[in-house]
C-alpha cells in the first residue's frame, strides 16, 4: 500500500521553511521524514507525516501543497541493501523520479521512499523480491 507524501512549494527566501514547519509543529503533527529539493528561486519540501489530514488542514489555505502517493520500502542497514531494492525496481522497468531515506522504526533498518511512475508494479515487484513495503 502506497503512503501519502505532502509536497509543499516554498519560495526561496528567509523564513518560509520556518513558518511552514512552525505551523506543522503547532498542530502537533510529527514529521517522520523530510527532504527538500531546491532550484534557484523555489524549493519543494517533501514530508511524510503521521497525520496527513491535519497537516493539510493547517497548511492548505496559503500553501501550494500537493499529495503524492509514494512507495516506502524497508531496507536493512547493510551493504548492498539498496542495490537489491533497485534491482527489483529495474526488473519491473519502473522509473524513479526521486527518492530519499529515513531511519526506520526497527533499529538496524531504514525506510526508503520512492516516487515512481508505476506504484502498483513497483510494490508488487518489491514484495516478490522479499522486500517489506509499508
Amino acid at each position: 500500500m502506497a503512503i501519502t507524501q505532502l509536497s509543499i512549494f516554498l519560495e526561496n527566501k528567509p523564513g518560509t521553511l520556518h513558518d511552514t514547519v512552525k505551523r506543522i509543529s503547532e498542530a502537533g503533527v510529527n514529521i517522520r521524514a523530510m527532504t527538500i529539493a531546491e532550484v534557484r528561486d523555489f524549493g519543494i519540501l517533501r514530508i511524510i507525516v503521521d497525520d496527513v489530514a491535519k497537516a493539510m488542514e493547517v497548511l492548505q489555505d496559503d500553501h501550494i501543497i500537493t499529495t503524492t502517493e509514494v512507495v516506502s520500502a524497508v531496507m536493512e542497514d547493510k551493504a548492498g541493501a539498496l542495490y537489491d531494492i533497485l534491482q527489483a525496481l529495474e526488473a519491473a522497468n519502473v522509473n524513479i523520479e526521486y527518492m530519499y531515506a529515513y531511519t526506520g522504526e526497527v533499529t538496524g533498518s531504514a525506510n526508503v521512499v520512492f516516487r515512481v511512475d508505476d506504484i502498483e508494479g513497483a510494490e508488487a515487484k518489491l514484495r516478490e523480491a522479499g522486500v517489506e513495503v509499508l
Partner: peptide, 15 residues
Amino acid sequence: EADPAKISDKIADIQ
C-alpha cells in the same frame, strides 16, 4: 499566485 491543484511535486514541471 499559482493554483495548488495545478502544481506538480516535481521541480521540472514547475520550471
